[in-house]
Design a protein around this nucleic acid. Structure first.
Length: 646
DNA sequence: CTAGGGTTAG
């Protein structure tokens, strides 16, 4: 009679013990994950070490935590030390290797696994896809017996990433899943390629659409400037999300329709902090810091992002004085706050801030290092650059491609091309940003040939160039005077890669053509320009016309420049003396009058006097006395004006 | 919101 009681008691005790144990296990595991998510590795390790009983999930949490923080080595140590492993452990480890480009190790694990499920296959597949190795991805895909919609979506996305739309489309047509996931992958792919037509037809045939689908389509429309269409879709949307409102507002902002953005913002039923911040950043982008500040003072609740947006505004105006004052007012600063300040100072002051940042126990991140390293590059201080390099290694940021890119450009700017090359070659996971940096480094050093070589190996290994790649190539060609190559480059970017040249590309191309005297070609390009060019481009072209004595084009460009009614552009006209060289004195005088209306500035007057001086000599040789006297008078009055306006 | 595959907003 007694024994069962004891038994029951024991059992009860045992059960409670187990329960509380399980409970605390559960909570500790959660804690570890959270610590890793915050990047606090020390704390995670502490929790792990203190745990009396560990579970397979615990060990798995450790693996995935290390992987998420880019610490594959430590992840592997955990993997080797754990008492037993399950599919999750293997998959997490495999994925970790894949994420940092160590595909051979991934594959070794993958091959060693005894029972694989869809997730394992997908992880391996995504490893190949994210590293641009589509051939292997494709053959792996064919081997997979049980496929998932994630499987399909992964490969489809991979083809899109390489710009192979047809492959993506073929796969999509064969795909048995009519998921939102797969459809949205297609939508995003089309959106990224800027293929509005396909996007639109697909969207029309979709059976079910979630908010993300609508949002993708609307964002794509706003991105290509079709704001009316975007708005129509937005109005048609059955259930609107705060996010869609935000996307729409940000679309207006991006297209410089700040008033429309504001109108929509005012119509919005319940505003989120994010939307407040978006409209504020719109004003900041439009260089209207006052409006942004007004909103900032009006908003019901502030966020660190709100503070950062205004701070960014000051930095953007190079008003580092007020930036600093504002910075001191920010109650709780975050990484971004410090980064904005650090990146704002393109000087040694960035380093002072960096030390202060460390004292507040805020961890520097990739952006911080990118900023600091680029400062080293532009100041060409090799020693500091190397120091920052070692810091980046210590913080394990050398897996980040922006950091590595900044290192490459820093070493190249300091004149250490060998180091730049070594870094590039030893980085296993190369992405577009990295390739761009190396190509730009070669261009910067005037070895356009190397840049072009690199470009072909980039495309051969399956990476898709972007507009920055081409900008690097073009500037390289410009420095080396390689006209033919740059022209081919320029043509192929739109034809082969469907990348529309931006104003910068056009400016670069016109610069190359102009300087090498191919003014007819430059003119052809200028004639059908789809974008608005910055006025300095016209100036450059104008001086090219002068050097190569092409007065027809010069006149055209000159008139264009006058049309821009830009003060600096006008000075360019005067400086280039095109009008005077052709004896078009009246036109030159008109330019001067135009400029005078906008306030005489010292350099304007100087240019004018310089110009006068030349003609003066010309006239003097002709011994035309009345002209001479008039010029004298003019010079005197201009000198007086110069004194007045300082 | 305990661990593995693909995504998304300043």
């Amino acid at each position: 009679m007694i024994i069962p009681v004891i038994h029951v008691k024991n059992a009860r005790f045992h059960l409670r013990f187990l329960c509380s144990n399980a409970n605390s296990l559960f909570q500790s595991n959660t804690k570890i994950t959270r610590c890793f998510r915050n990047g606090d590795i020390k704390a995670a390790l502490h929790v792990f070490d203190e745990m009396p009983v560990k579970n397979i999930v615990t060990w798995n949490c450790m693996i995935s935590g290390f992987v998420k923080n880019g610490m594959v080595f430590d992840a592997r140590k955990v993997f080797d030390e754990m008492p037993n492993r399950n599919v999750v452990s293997w998959t997490a480890m495999l994925d970790g290797y894949a994420k940092c480009g160590r595909l051979d190790e991934s594959r070794a694990l993958f091959d060693a696994m005894t029972d694989k499920n869809v997730v394992c296959w997908n992880a391996m597949l995504s490893g190949y896809v994210t590293n641009g190795r589509m051939d292997e991805a494709r053959s792996l895909f064919d081997e997979i017996l049980v496929k998932n919609s994630v499987t399909w979506a992964t490969v489809i996305e991979g083809w899109f990433r390489q710009g192979r739309v047809d492959e993506a489309r073929n796969l999509f047509d064969d795909c048995p899943f009519d998921d939102v996931l797969v459809n949205n992958t297609m939508l995003v792919g089309y959106a990224e390629m800027g293929d509005l037509e396909s996007l639109w037809t697909l969207f029309g045939t979709m059976r079910e659409r979630d908010v993300a689908s609508w949002t993708t389509v609307i964002r794509c429309f706003t991105k290509s400037g079709k704001m009316v269409m975007a708005r129509k879709l937005f109005d048609d949307m059955p259930a609107k999300d705060v996010i869609v409102w935000t996307v729409m507002i940000q679309g207006y902002v991006k297209n410089n329709q700040i008033e429309d953005a504001r109108k929509l913002f005012d119509e919005m039923p319940n505003r989120d902090i994010v939307v407040w911040n978006s409209i504020m950043s719109g004003y900041v982008k439009n260089k209207n810091l006052e409006q942004a500040l007004e909103l900032f003072n009006k908003m019901p609740k502030r966020n660190i992002v709100s503070w950062n947006t205004i701070l960014q505004g000051y930095v953007q105006e190079h008003d580092m004085l007020n930036a600093r004052i504002f910075f001191n007012k920010i109650p709780v600063k975050d990484q971004t706050t410090w980064n904005i300040m650090i990146c704002g100072f393109q000087s040694g002051e960035a380093f002072d801030l960096y030390y202060q940042m460390l004292q507040t126990r805020i961890k520097p991140d990739q952006v911080t290092f990118t900023g600091l390293i680029s400062v080293c590059g532009s100041l060409a201080v090799h020693g500091w650059g190397k120091a920052m390099h070692s810091c980046a290694i210590k913080y394990a940021y050398v897996n980040d491609s922006t950091v590595v890119s900044s290192l490459i450009s820093m070493y190249s700017k300091c004149g250490f091309m060998d180091d730049a090359t070594i870094i590039f070659e030893t980085t296993i996971k190369k992405d577009t940003v990295l390739w761009n940096a190396m190509i730009a480094a070669h261009s910067y050093h005037g070895s356009a040939l190397n840049a072009l070589k690199l470009f072909s190996s980039m495309t051969e290994s399956g990476y898709r160039p972007d507009h920055l790649t081409f900008l690097g190539l073009l500037t390289g060609c410009a420095h080396s005077g390689m006209v033919k190559e740059s022209w081919e480059c320029f043509k192929s970017m739109e034809k082969n890669w469907k990348i529309h040249p931006t104003a910068e590309h056009y400016a670069c191309m016109i610069d190359i053509l102009g300087r090498s005297g191919m003014l007819t070609e430059a003119y052809e390009l200028v004639k059908q320009l789809p974008v608005e060019l910055p006025s300095y481009t016209w100036e450059t072209l104008l001086s090219c016309c002068r050097v190569h004595e092409n007065f027809e084009l010069g006149e055209l460009v000159g008139r264009k420049l006058v049309g821009t009614r830009d003060l600096n552009a006008g000075i360019g006209v005067l400086r280039s003396n095109i009008y005077a060289a052709r004896g078009m004195w009246d036109d030159a005088a008109n330019v001067r009058t135009l400029l005078a209306h906008r306030g005489v500035r010292k350099d304007v007057a100087c240019s004018w006097i310089e110009l006068k001086g030349r003609v003066f000599r010309f006239v003097y040789n002709d011994r035309s006395h009345s002209e001479l006297e008039e010029l004298h008078k003019m010079l005197e009055s201009l000198s007086a004006a110069m004194e007045i306006y300082g």
